[in-house]
Design a protein around this nucleic acid. Structure first.
Lengths: 343, 343
DNA sequence: ATAAAGTGTGGAACCGCTCCCATGAAATCC
DNA sequence: GGATTTCATGGGAGCGGTTCCACACTTTAT
């Protein structure tokens, strides 16, 4: 019944056509140097002519590896597809992997069942290594994979940092730069809308805020700190509370652009002008940052680079746990002050 | 050097522990009925005890199939991750596939090179079938895959419709319902912002608009039609042109919510009240629809169901080309008229 | 009772590839 | 010039499953 169309061209056929043994043909296709130029050419011609494509399963079985890498995003699909973080990350990872001829497999476990399925998937040999992002809290997965001897690289500092190889972006430094920028523009009452304090990025950005104030000789003030959940609504509410407590504030550093956007709304409602009365700096350099009004000064994270670095790390995953910390870049726009203002 | 950790547990080990042959052990694990209850239990126990996980490559090599299905989205990653269409589609596909224990592999070819890579990937046996969405124009891929004997199901009617198995959503019907709804609310000068006319959905929604007018006995009027590119800005401009040509219009049907949102902006600028002066209906039931002001009446597409149907179709892909057309549903909100108005 | 059909099982071939090892020819050495 | 090394090559043994086939043993029909 089945269309015997181009019924499977195997290495055997190629070898036959090239008048060499299967072993020699295999050497040519695996770039083994011990082949005479004639044989090489003959095999290459035959392979091209027949449209030969090596059978993945057979190769994987013989070599013991699949030449594929899994990217595991443990986040609800709806979130994955809303956040510009992931396309950037994937682009970075994809670049490096493509150059090394590895296949990227995207996995988004949604449930505990999916997690188990995932472990079997990897253990069954589908992928040679795993890239893990947006882990929440202490997660069993990286440990279990590691126990099976499967290389894992985590994106973003995990809770048990010293156990795993990971790549992180310098959240403290990013926040520090943002707040220093505000201080340099002459702001003296700099408040912050921090992220959730049970997430490393949330904590680190608050730390960066504080140490920048200290470095600038500005007083630390608990009343100038308000935390929210990275959403716009959360930002609006937090800004309202800050205005109540510190009506004379002249700057806000928000730990995400969404929260910054919320802050902008609240500020507008309360009649404050941005940046004349209050300067605002966000975080992430989300597309919303450039299109908000006024355009938002923001901390840009090297997410593509993080992807690249994760992929690189995984590829030479035989090494002992390593870590890489990347630095951010401040995107200055109108929201933090007039362009003519002194730097 | 390599950690010989739990050095690969094979079927051989399981068989040994269960005191049966490898053949019998295999029968148990492939749900072959010709096994005695005792053997079955013994094998199951041994497998569990050893934490046995079948090697994928070996199984694929022996059976000739991989139990995986590729979803190919030929769209820039940035677009994929912006559009709520894809998570919904993936959810639908995932449901059906998970129930049948198939693995979903996401592929997003970005270039011609990627396309070639993709073909090799599938031909190499990584996946048993391909789901294809957002094809633009006449695309060589489905044909080439089909020529290799690989089952393909296309999402959205392809240009060469009768060659492939596909699932589509009834764009004509959706537009028809939207326009009928407007007419039922007493609107008489119903204009439309149509999508690009080189895309089937763009064309079909315009057709639906026209046939609804006809059905309602309203005159067709070329001046009441303006096409745009599915974006908000395009919608704004198109609305402006419509207002110039037909200042007395009392309704607009936009072929996407983004364009409808643009139309709302232009209408507000021109001082028209929605829905009192002009009723508006969009398409897609995008999240922006519910949060725009006023909330947008829109055509909701059964995207999850489309995913499910695509997966089902692929799974029994031995059949002759088939097609399935799904119907839409009108989401009535404020933009198309007061709730108290007569239906 | 004897033949026929049905059951559970193990041996072994096979899927398509890689790679170790033995072999013979050519190149290098003393 | 003979011994040794180098090199390309083919044979063949796996990799870890599935499945055909033959076999011994029951069960059922005649």
């Amino acid at each position: 019944m089945k269309s015997a169309q181009n019924s499977k061209i195997t290495l055997e056929h190629v070898a036959e056509m090239a008048r060499v043994s299967r072993a020699t043909a295999s050497r040519v296709l695996t770039a083994n140097p011990r082949v005479s130029p004639e044989s090489r050419r003959a095999v290459e011609r035959a392979a091209r002519k027949l449209g030969y494509i090596p059978n993945h399963a057979a190769r994987a079985l013989a070599t013991g590896h699949s030449d594929a890498v899994a990217l595991v995003i443990s986040e609800p699909t709806s979130l994955i597809f809303g956040d510009p973080f992931f396309p950037r990350l994937i682009r970075g990872i994809g670049e490096v992997l493509a150059a090394r001829d590895k296949q990227l497999i995207l996995l988004a476990p949604q449930s505990g069942t999916d997690m188990d399925r995932l472990e079997r998937f990897v253990a069954a040999g589908h992928s040679d290594g795993v890239l893990l992002v947006s882990l929440h809290g202490v997660h069993p997965l990286p440990g279990r994979l590691a126990a099976r001897g499967i290389p894992v690289v985590v994106g973003g500092r995990p809770a048990e940092a010293d156990l795993f190889t990971y790549v992180d972006i310098d959240n403290v430094g990013g926040a520090f730069a943002a707040v220093t920028h505000l201080a340099a523009r002459g702001r003296r009452s700099i408040t912050t809308i921090s992220g959730p304090q049970d997430m490393p990025p949330g904590r680190d950005r608050l730390l960066g805020y504080r140490s920048a104030l200290e470095a600038e000789g500005l007083p630390l003030d608990e009343g100038a700190e308000e935390s929210a959940d990275f959403t716009q609504e959360g930002g609006e509410r937090a800004m309202r509370r800050l205005l109540e407590r510190r009506p004379s504030l002249d700057a806000v550093f928000a730990a995400s652009d969404l929260m910054a956007a919320g802050a902008l709304r609240t500020l507008a409602e309360s009649g404050r002008r941005v940046p004349d009365d209050v300067a605002v700096v966000g975080y992430d350099d989300d597309p919303v940052a450039a299109s908000s009004s006024p355009p938002l000064t923001s901390v840009r994270q090297p997410i593509e680079e993080m992807g690249r670095e994760m992929a690189r790390l995984l590829l030479d995953a035989m090494h002992a746990p390593r870590r890489v910390i990347l630095t951010t870049e401040l995107q200055v726009r109108l929201s933090s002050g007039r362009a003519t203002e002194a730097m």
